[in-house]
Amino acid sequence: MNTENPRPRNHLKLILGALLVAVLAIGYFVLAGPHASDVSPNAHTAHSEGATPREPGQSAFAAIAEIVAMLDADPDTDWSKVDIGALRAHLVDMDRLTLGASAREVTAGNTVTFRISGTGGVLRAIHAMVPAHGLELDRLEDWQVSTETTDDGAILAITADDPSEIERIRALGFFGLMALGSHHQPHHLAMARGTMEGH
């Protein structure tokens, strides 16, 4: 026959339960900060009504929204030339190139050559973007840059005399090189304004 008194166990459960409630309550007030005291029924409604989301939800949409806001805020915008469709087409090309293209690298001496390939819309994006960006890289860096379109993509060749630059080029790889420089944003604005053709 078990003569153990069950009361000590019950007391232990009550103490542990109380400690758990206390820890949860303290955690709530620490995480909630100064707003924890807003306990009125309308407090949370007021906060949610006054808040504005900042995330537009998708990167291409965000880029277009930023450009549209700039155009709308500029009193000199010539709306007869604005072409948001051209910007969108370019953003589609950027997406296809980044996510769909394949790139193989070969290094010979002081030249790094990338062979980029793809099909369908990816191929179109390669043909549109690689030669144009090659010109930007040639202006941007102390490199000799050449491009050539092929039936299945393009060839991007970069020559540099400094071995550390060859190491940098190889580390960046094709996709890092395509992102190099800050010319994309001005080009996006110019495309949307209808004042340029380009990648």
Results as ranks from 00 to 15, higher is better:
S117Q: 12
H44E: 13
V122N: 00
A60W: 10
W143G: 09
T113E: 04
H35S: 03
I126L: 02
G176Y: 00
G121V: 01
G109H: 09
H127Q: 08
A63Q: 09
L123M: 08
W79P: 07
E167I: 03
L172Q: 10
L71A: 02
S59A: 11
L177E: 00
G85N: 09
I169F: 07
I84T: 14
T111E: 13
Q58S: 15
E167M: 05
L156I: 06
L91A: 11
P131I: 05
L123Y: 05
T52G: 11
A43G: 14
S48R: 08
V92I: 10
H133S: 06
A160E: 06
S146H: 12
F174N: 01
A108V: 15
T159N: 10
M70I: 04
E165W: 10
A36S: 10
R96L: 15
S40R: 15
R104I: 02
L123A: 08
R54K: 12
G121R: 04
A63V: 04
R124D: 12
H47N: 00
D72P: 04
G109F: 11
V112E: 03
M129S: 14
E105N: 11
D142W: 09
H133L: 01
E141R: 15
L137P: 15
V106I: 15
P131H: 04
L140K: 14
W79E: 01
R115M: 01
E55K: 08
A171L: 05
G121Y: 09
V92K: 13
Q58W: 15
L137S: 04
A86G: 01
M178F: 06
N110W: 10
A43Q: 07
A65S: 14
A63M: 09
G134T: 02
I166L: 08
P56A: 04
L137M: 12
Q144F: 09
L91I: 05
T150H: 03
S80F: 00
L99D: 10
A46Y: 08
G33L: 04
V145P: 00
F174A: 05
G134I: 03
D152Y: 02
A125W: 03
V82L: 07
S117W: 07
A60H: 14
P131Q: 06
V130R: 05
L123F: 11
T98H: 09
H47L: 13
E148Q: 14
H133W: 02
L156D: 00
N42M: 15
A36H: 07
T119G: 10
E136V: 13
V39P: 00
S48P: 09
L172T: 05
G57P: 03
A62I: 02
G173F: 08
R54P: 01
H127L: 11
R124A: 12
T159H: 13
S102N: 15
D138L: 07
A86V: 01
V145D: 00
